[in-house]
C-alpha cells in the first residue's frame, strides 16, 4: 500500500489527544453557539436562565467536559505553536509549566462557576 501523508509521528499521544478533542469540540462548540445565540439570545442572559440550564446534570456534565477539552486543546495548541517557533530548553520547560498552571486555574474557576449556577455547594 502506498503511504499517504499524515502529520502523525509515532509516540504522539498529545498529537492524538489534540485531534480527539478537536472532533469533540467541533460538535460541542457548534451546539454551544447555536443554543446560546440562536435558541436563546445574548440580550436575554440572566443568572436564573443560566442556573436552570446548569441544574440539568447532562448539561452540567457536557459543559464541564467542554471546559476541560477546550482548555486542553487551546493550551496544547499554544504550546505547539511556541515549539514550532523554536522554543527549546529551560524556556520551554518554564512555559510548559506556566501553561499547565494557567490551565488549572481556568478549569478550577470554570468548575466553580458551573457549581454556583447548578446550586452545588462547592464553589
Amino acid at each position: 500500500m502506498a503511504e499517504r501523508y499524515s502529520s502523525f509521528q509515532s509516540g504522539g499521544r498529545m498529537w492524538l489527544l489534540q485531534r480527539i478533542t478537536a472532533a469533540f469540540l467541533l460538535v460541542v462548540l457548534a451546539f454551544h453557539f447555536f443554543l446560546l445565540h440562536f435558541v436563546h439570545h445574548a440580550d436575554e442572559v440572566s443568572f436564573l436562565a443560566s442556573s436552570a440550564r446548569m441544574e440539568n446534570l447532562s448539561y452540567y456534565s457536557l459543559m464541564i467536559l467542554f471546559l476541560v477539552t477546550a482548555t486542553f486543546h487551546g493550551v496544547n495548541g499554544v504550546y505547539n505553536a511556541l515549539v514550532n517557533q523554536g522554543l527549546t530548553g529551560t524556556k520551554r520547560t518554564v512555559i510548559k509549566w506556566t501553561l499547565v498552571a494557567a490551565s488549572t486555574v481556568l478549569i478550577v474557576q470554570g468548575v466553580r462557576t458551573a457549581n454556583a449556577w447548578a446550586g452545588i455547594g462547592l464553589y
Binding site: F47, T71, G74, V75, G77, V78, L106, Q109, A116, W117
Partner: peptide, 25 residues
Amino acid sequence: KFTGWVLIGYLFTHIAVLSTGIPAA
C-alpha cells in the same frame, strides 16, 4: 494559528466574565 490564539485568549476572558456567577449565587 491566528484564530487559535484568539480563541484561547477569549476562553480565558469568557470564564473570567462568567465567574461573576460565583458572587451572584
